[in-house]
Design a binder for these strands. Structure first.
Length: 287
DNA sequence: AAAGCCTCCAACCGCCTATGG
DNA sequence: TCCATAGGCGGTTGGAGGCTT
């Protein structure tokens, strides 16, 4: 039996696209728009499978595609997102304007996976690596009073805990703007709220998908409470992070944070992005 | 110069999900 | 509820071009 192919392969061109095929495809899509890929080849006069047309358009001909090498910042972001989301290339690509999932996947397989292994980033089990965070790329938000530049000193031994301290994290006002980085941080806060299916937001599925990934990562890192607590300021959400007494005392006694700390998401990421962060040890936290 | 090897990436493949009848 | 279809995704392949010997 076997699976029915997406289209008849007989008489179709395969392999690399020619310049003339590209021209025909681009002209057709510019005139008629995307979609209806199965019928597109016939209507456009192309001897190609519809899937092949779609792939060629999305990965090569689309006008928004960014040309040129992956920049350091992009590379850094890919690494961070990969740690957070795994091999979910389309989600990662969604956070890199102009880059395609295929491009990122190829770049990862050919370049970054090796780098990650060489640097021990893949196997590293620190809290920061598990969270998918990379110190280099963190941009501190000036609104926070949480982050300081020096690393906290970790306790030498794990202390079982009976109670949890909470760090409230709320989006900074700047997170309500449109710049990609702050918007992304704000997005994550919304993600955690599990947008309902009937949400007016068109990419709620993407958000919920990312939220699931983020939650699982947070759980891996023994952060016990990741729920969004309540609405504030017309769209922002409180985010409550629970840590053990040991960690809390460590951070506070080392002047790493103040009591009743409120920070934006970027600052939280920066805050957690410390190799010596102690709570990778399960005994530090109630889970 | 040429053969062999390696790397990169465009393209393909098969599976999964969403959608509509 | 079932089925067919289309679109989307991640894994894999294979060829072109660069590099090494």
């Amino acid at each position: 039996m076997g699976r029915r192919p997406c289209c008849s392969k007989e008489g179709l061109n395969r392999g690399a696209w020619t310049a003339s095929e590209d021209t025909v495809l681009a002209a057709y899509i510019q005139q008629h728009g995307e979609g209806n890929w199965r019928n597109l080849p016939c209507r456009a006069g192309l001897k190609r499978c519809g899937k092949s047309c779609r792939l060629r358009w999305l990965n090569y001909l689309h006008p928004d595609i960014k040309r040129g090498n992956i920049s350091e910042d992009e590379e850094d972001l890919i690494i961070r997102l990969h740690k957070l989301l795994g091999n979910r290339w389309s989600l990662i690509a969604g956070r890199l304007p102009g880059r395609t999932d295929n491009e990122i996947k190829n770049y990862w397989n050919s370049t970054l996976s090796k780098k990650a292994h060489v640097n021990g980033m893949v196997q590293k089990s620190s809290a920061s690596s598990k969270l998918g965070l990379n110190r280099k790329s963190i941009v501190k938000n000036p609104t926070t009073k949480l982050v300081r530049s020096k690393k906290p000193i970790s306790p030498k031994s794990a202390v079982p805990i009976n109670s949890l301290r909470h760090i409230q994290v709320v989006p900074a006002m700047s997170s309500l703007g449109d710049s990609p980085s702050t918007f992304s941080a704000f997005h994550n806060l919304q993600d955690l709220q599990e947008l309902p299916k009937d949400s007016a937001n068109t990419d709620h599925e993407l958000k919920n998908s990312e939220a699931e990934a983020l939650k699982s990562r947070l759980k891996e890192n023994t952060i016990e409470d990741y729920g969004c607590k309540n609405n504030l300021n017309g769209g922002g959400f409180n985010y409550s992070l629970s840590v053990s007494d040991a960690i809390y005392q460590d951070w506070t006694t080392n002047d790493f944070l103040e009591g009743n700390t409120i920070a934006d998401m970027d600052s939280l990421i920066s805050f957690l992005n410390v190799e010596e962060w102690p709570c990778v040890n399960d005994s530090f936290i109630n889970v």
